[in-house]
Design a protein around this nucleic acid. Structure first.
Lengths: 380, 380
DNA sequence: TCACGTTATCCAGGACTCCTGGATAACTAT
DNA sequence: ATAGTTATCCAGGAGTCCTGGATAACGTGA
């Protein structure tokens, strides 16, 4: 139903076999032709032909042969991640973050610029531009070398890359991010919601690598979710998926207040997200009021999370977002709450990313675009 | 990620092109080679070759040429749905229902047997056997002619076709339905939950034909849901998807009580599901207490439904199950309730099936199995 | 050092599938 | 009848894959 493998020309067959070879080589260790041939099911001779082809086009690179085995040493190939460059941008409330990576997602440069949360559209876009320029310069990459770009933003994004609605950022609804970024870099530009991209990053290089169905919870000043279903990012009909927070019964809107009100009880102001650490630090030190605040928070979080879990029955729940650095104290209470509601409580893991997960997801989005073009014509 | 189109031999290319041709011919009207060639993108000559091949194997049938056009009349082909037979069985609390269909899902025989809700495992299985035998006889089909079989049951089903858990049917947990049915018919047998299959039937021949993301609500004495995501049935990691009713906040357990208590207020006993009609009839006639009972019911139903909708953002919500015959009086209240909670209320449709939807979904499950074998070798 | 086994690479030859383009067939319209 | 139109049939050629054999490169043991 979804993506019917379509037939066609003989060249189409070559394309399929070439992507099969590339897929095998996305694993980390280089492979010999014989190994490749076994994995793809192609004959050795054809594998050789395909590999020669891909090598000529720059998709593969040769690696020094392994020594120490009997027989003639085999040439070894690896995916040439350096063939192209990807750009991932996360434009949020307090910061702009840009990643320049290779085709494996290896970060060549990570640049962060702080942005005034009150900044208007013009100012925020300008900050993003500076951030991108700095990241490109830092990686020693011309804008023209960027193959594909992904952009993450809060709020709801339509298919063409416009921000439809954003309550948290001033003057942000309606901005055509894709068009704006297309002026900076060539190649395709895709825009997506930050929660969704954070989820995507987890299945790519994060803690959800081997799961097909994943619920990602963004736990921070905002609460949100991103869903991976059958290995793919689920968007929904109008890209509104995962917005369970809209249900008052879920309690996601009020959930963070348990933490902010605890902070207000202490001296620190909760304006900067860093300050939030203190609740978790206090809880870890045994402060009962902090423990209780976190418990209340998790209790509210868990109702919505349970709704997501009961709906989808995922293999895995990943906690990310601003609070995830301190999420070790959240996991157990969350598990207990989920046990209360869910028929089968999934595994719970904490994101290993700091705050670059969203931008990495944007890179993955950019890579999706590249891989789609692989399937329909191998360009370089 | 999910189903990577894999390459291979030249024969693999032929397979792909053959399935492309078959896919085009699953549309209702027969096509000429020229039309097929245009739709598949293949050259005319190759299309002819593929069609000749498929015709020889029995997958296609020739239709009398259309007259009245200029030029030489073209031969026309259609999918030969009569090449094989499928069996779909729905084994529920009150009845067993078996469908024998062709490869298009056209029903050749529909047989229903009533079963005592209190019947034990042995008795229920025996009733199912009788039902299947009668359906086969009624369709004039030998068991050996059945290519593939799907079975629907309440409760949760594991991957191998065992019922893991069923609260509603006595002695039903643990029964190995697949193994049992495999003694009746050759060919693959797959078992799945009834809500899920009802959802599948709607996307196949029901009111959800053109939607990729669908929430199906089973509204009856039991309340349940089946999810279609990206055109495919979503099962979840342990096949527990859609069980939002487990969340007390969703209110699905108590929802039908609003209707049963109204019925208890009247003379009729709510044991037989037919009696339920009376609430809806009364409501349609303007009985305010009945209208209120339905409103209360819908209000409880809508909370869980909203959770599903907010999670997935489907294009469409389909109402099926025992109450769906009378669902016209439910649609408007449901829409109003969903409007209260959802960011975007999807289209709401009522299933057009009576109670054979579940069995038809079982047939679709059987057909999935057949189509999978098409992609890896065209047998007959 | 050299033959030998092992493994990889290279090189036809053959089979299959698709494409192109032209010749032939069948039907309608004038 | 003849012209026009569309479908079918029939090579010939190109691309891709497979098989199997010849050659190359390396380690091992005599």
């Amino acid at each position: 139903m979804s993506e019917e493998p379509v037939g066609g020309d003989l060249s189409r067959l070559r394309q399929l076999n070439a992507s099969a070879v590339l897929r095998e080589l996305r694993g980390d260790q280089p492979l010999t032709l014989t190994e490749l041939s076994k994995r793809t099911g192609l004959s050795r001779a054809s594998t050789e032909d395909v590999a020669r082809d891909l090598l000529g086009r720059g998709w593969l690179a040769e690696v020094a042969p392994a020594s120490g085995s009997v027989g003639r040493p085999a040439r070894r190939y690896r995916f040439n991640a350096g063939a192209g460059r990807l750009l991932g941008v996360d434009i949020g409330g307090h910061k702009a973050l840009a990643l320049v990576t290779d085709l494996d997602g290896k970060v060549l440069n990570q640049t962060r610029i702080t942005v005034d949360p009150e900044a208007g559209r013009r100012e925020r876009l300008a900050a993003m531009d500076r951030c991108v320029a700095k990241a490109l310069a830092g990686a020693g990459v011309e804008a023209g070398q960027i193959w594909s770009t992904g952009v993450a933003t809060t709020g709801l994004v339509d298919g063409s890359g416009k921000v439809m609605l954003s309550d948290s950022l001033p003057e942000w609804s309606g901005v055509d991010l894709a068009a704006h970024v297309r002026r900076l870099v060539p190649g395709p530009v895709r825009v997506e919601n930050d929660c969704k991209l954070a989820a995507l990053a987890e299945t790519w290089h994060g803690v959800a690598r081997y799961a097909k169905d994943v619920v990602f919870l963004l736990a921070g000043l905002r609460t949100g979710a991103g869903l991976i279903i059958d290995g793919k990012l689920h968007r929904g009909f109008a890209n509104w998926s995962g917005e369970i927070g809209a249900l008052p019964a879920a309690g996601w809107l009020r959930a963070p207040e348990h933490l902010t009100s605890w902070l207000e009880g202490t001296a620190a102001s909760p304006s900067a997200p860093v300050e939030f650490e203190s609740v978790f630090i206090a809880a870890r030190a045994g402060d009962q009021s902090a423990v209780q605040a976190i418990r209340d928070y998790v209790q509210d979080l868990a109702v919505g999370a349970s709704a997501l879990v009961l709906t989808l029955d995922p293999q895995l729940v990943v906690i990310g977002g601003g609070f995830s650095r301190s999420a070790d104290v959240m996991v157990e209470p969350l598990r207990r709450e989920l046990d209360r509601w869910c028929l089968r409580t999934p595994e719970i893991r904490v994101s290993a990313f700091a705050d670059e997960g969203v931008a990495l997801g944007a890179v993955r989005l950019a890579l999706d675009e590249v891989e789609a073009t692989i399937r329909t014509g191998l360009r370089p």
